[in-house]
Write a protein that binds this DNA or RNA. Structure first.
Lengths: 270, 270
DNA sequence: CCATGTGAAGGCCTTCACAGCC
DNA sequence: GGCTGTGAAGGCCTTCACATGG
């Protein structure tokens, strides 16, 4: 049955106040519903699947179907959706188009967010060329680097500018999200400049902990950590049982961990 | 004060039995200590910082120092370290080299893990060229693609093989970890072949939920999700208060969320 | 005295189970 | 009858606070 699931990361923080919601009651702003961080990440996953379902011509989905397709428990999915409102029809399921729209609105994807990418080395170059961003409402509006061999070249029709111009260029192009794909030592300085340029959120690929003012949100993607966590599981498995054939059907007494899908982000590698 | 923290993802699962530990007691295997998944991810972060500290010539660190440097709470750090044993010295701190070694052992990094990368398109090419893998005990031992224009080329001295040869090549080279950087539609089929080849862990960059047998561990990295979560926070902020200057010092009543560092993986983009 | 290691408390999230509604 | 929405229960993880020991 190949159990699997996609659980997402968690802040040490509490949950998060919701975006503007057409709340009919004139209640004070203090009691707005709040959405757990873990739920927000999963909503993005549901959204993608809803897009695929719509393309396939589906009109409705049940929580069970959508949950299976996205690798979560159906109760969890219903609870997640309950945070954004009651858009399901009992006895039927969810209307695909409508739910898609509601999630999009909740995630703030109804307006485009200009992205700046700093560091067009190995990884950065790949990110710059990744066509999935623009298509998903995240047009890459600016590229930066310090390498004179890179400054001035075009990637996907965008010129690479010098890092020193971050404040001006970001302001001009209304950048709201920054991505840092520089070597570790350069990351903090780049981060500071992005913050000075008014960027509110940063996706950090550099292996450092960024210091930012309270109002700036940082998410970190650390490939080395991912691999090391996997390495741990390989080691654990090797230690645990002796079989090394592919699929051992017998289940050791009490060691029913099995395997699962973890974490929460992905790239359309086109 | 730039509060920040790096919280890592969480499985829906329970924690995880520990790797072989020189337990002096002859106790039954059933009671071995178990390490929370969240802790495992942070251990990798501590490990990197310990490496840097060692390079700088530090002999010892306190939990407070190491915690600040890695963006976590010092109590959490001590609890994390307590899962792998008592290697600290009260009144002093931790011996850098020794702690580094213990974490390495716990994560199973004392033996190399051969990695196979499937899909050398945009992102995959960048990953293949990422020099940080080999240096960290994860040599990329095999590359695969279906594109005839790619099969046969060399990247970093490694030939790109055809996907159909996954079972043979992976077996030959003792691959234990697979990375999937193909377009979404190809991912499941590639995954099946990796599993058939005996790969135990998979790092999935494709935006699909992989179906795997219970014994295979999958971690997913989804850039689109990361950006959408950030977009949500931008939207939330825009909805919350009206100021859009860079650093508004006043804190809205009850909206003291601020900002933080989230999630858990990163790439040394060299 | 200072910093580790850890029971205990608290918080967030998941899971269960069923009432409510179509 | 079926599926959603949700209170309640349970689990994992974080945080606190202090006993413990160099």
């Amino acid at each position: 049955m190949t159990a699997d699931r996609t659980t997402n990361d968690v802040r040490g923080d509490a949950s998060v106040t919701s975006p503007p919601q057409a709340d009919p009651s004139g209640s004070a702003a203090k009691l707005v519903r709040s959405i757990p961080e873990a739920t927000v990440a999963r909503l993005a996953v549901y959204l993608r699947m809803l897009g695929e379902l719509a393309e396939q011509g589906a009109e409705t989905v049940s929580s069970e179907e959508l949950a299976t397709a996205t690798g979560v428990n159906s109760a969890k999915l219903r609870k997640d959706l309950s945070y954004i409102g009651s858009y399901g029809i009992r006895g039927v399921g969810y209307e695909v188009a409508s739910l898609h729209h509601q999630i999009e609105r909740t995630l703030g994807l109804d307006r485009q967010q200009a992205v700046a990418l700093v560091g067009v080395g190995n990884l950065g170059h790949a990110l710059a060329g990744y066509s999935g961003f623009g298509g998903r409402g995240f047009p890459v509006a600016a590229l930066f680097d310090v390498d004179p061999d890179l400054v001035g070249i075009h990637i996907n029709g965008i010129v690479v500018e010098h890092v020193r111009d971050i404040p001006r260029v970001c302001a001009e192009r209304g950048v709201t999200i920054g991505m840092i794909a520089t070597p570790g030592p350069a990351a903090q300085s780049v981060c500071d400049q992005l913050v000075r340029a008014g960027v509110q959120c940063i996706l950090n690929f550099a292996p450092v902990v960024l210091q930012v003012p309270e109002q700036v949100e940082v998410r970190k993607v650390d490939l080395a950590v991912e691999l090391q966590v996997l390495a741990f599981h390989v080691a654990r498995r090797r230690a645990g049982d002796a079989s090394d054939t592919v699929v051992a059907p017998s289940v050791a007494n009490g060691v029913r961990d099995g395997v699962h899908v973890t974490n929460g982000s992905a790239v359309l590698p086109r």
